[in-house]
Amino acid sequence: MAVLPQTARRAAGIKDGARTTARATPYLFVLPYILVFLLFRLGPSLAGLGISLTNWQAVGSPQWVGLRNFEAMLLRDTVFGVALRNTLVFSVITVPVLLVMGLMLALFLNQRMRGRAVGRVAVFTPYVVMSTVVGVVWTWILDKDFGLLNAYTGVATPWLVSERFALAGIILATVWWTVGYNMVLFLAGLQDIPEELYEAARIDGANTVNAFRFVTLPMLAPTMFVVLMLTIINSFQIFDQVYVMTSGGPGTATLTLVQYIYTQSFQYQKFGYGSAIAVVLFLILVVVAIFQTRAYRRGLEGVS
């Protein structure tokens, strides 16, 4: 990798004649993106970090409060604790389900059978429907009195109107909506596994289960890593469905971290406090990513 760009640069330098142009070229290429990135991503992120250290209602000058927002959040705000717990529960259930179901669907629809393309399209279709539509439709499907789900089960489960079931309702809708995405990522991973490996395994006398264990799983590890990372990031940031289906209720039963950020910043207009919660969410994601990357590296070492 290191060789090519250098050759390229040398070639460019020679042909363009002017050294300065050659040196400026890479910057010109990245500049448009960097400008937009600075203005609309990095800049606002850093500003958000700054706002989290203030007490600010957007009007007037921000009042510096140091880490007091974080102190209040972690030590006194019981609602924050509830939001954190709900987010963890949601993720701990959703992530494995989405991973296992996505993988199973991918294995299933990777079989050389007629009609598998139809299956793939069907499973992926929910994902192209926008999340707020998913929320509206599932609110109706989960209706306690006239909903489709309760009509089939024959039990009037109070899906979105009880603390016990509300989060489960959101999880159902989310799994339905996103499992197709994971399936497609796994399908791609499966198709990258060379057929020879399976043949070799077969010659060694491995049955289907063993082939899965010793060929598919290890070869799928990189895909698994990506899918896991994406699913975790998305799970921790769940908002749309919650906003549309329950707004965090009943009580605080489906209040997630992002919904709580929305509440504090945009319903209570406490922008400093809302930003502080967002910073904590960021820290959580970083910690998860570090742990996961470590585990992944260790796993790779174990395999090789």
Partner: peptide, 11 residues
């Protein structure tokens, strides 16, 4: 890893 919610207020 930076949740976009952190950028929303400044944006």
């Amino acid at each position: 890893f930076v949740p976009i919610q952190i950028t929303v207020v400044p944006l």
